[in-house]
Amino acid sequence: METYQIYSLASAVIFAVGLAGIFTTRLFFKKIIATKIMGGGVFLCFVSFAERDALAFADPVPHAMVITGIVVAVSAAAFALALARRIQQLTGQETFPVEEE
């Protein structure tokens, strides 16, 4: 077993954990964190392949993509959090209404 495989296996598990997290909670706040965990899994997958393809240095293309991805994902998460807060302030709701699920 190579080093990268440990992490790429972990990435699949982390992605699945995040996916499960989205379904198992109805709280906005936790759903947002669950998507972030999914993202962590995906990025780990990229970086593990970068290590596999290392020569003098690890493959820089996935590294650059992950940095881009992290910034994009954080931007989206910040927006989601702001939406959730605004909803909470306007209506007091912290979860999606049940009947629409």
């Binding site: 992605f15 996916l19 989205i22 995906v42 994902a73 927006f79 989601a80 939406l83 909803i87 999606f96």
Partner: peptide, 21 residues
């Protein structure tokens, strides 16, 4: 619209994470 928007955004983020995987 905020609630619908949050639902939309979460679906979109989850969708793009799947795509990115």
């Amino acid at each position: 619209s905020l609630i619908a928007g949050l639902r939309y955004l979460l679906a979109a983020i989850a969708g793009s994470m799947g795509y990115l995987f």
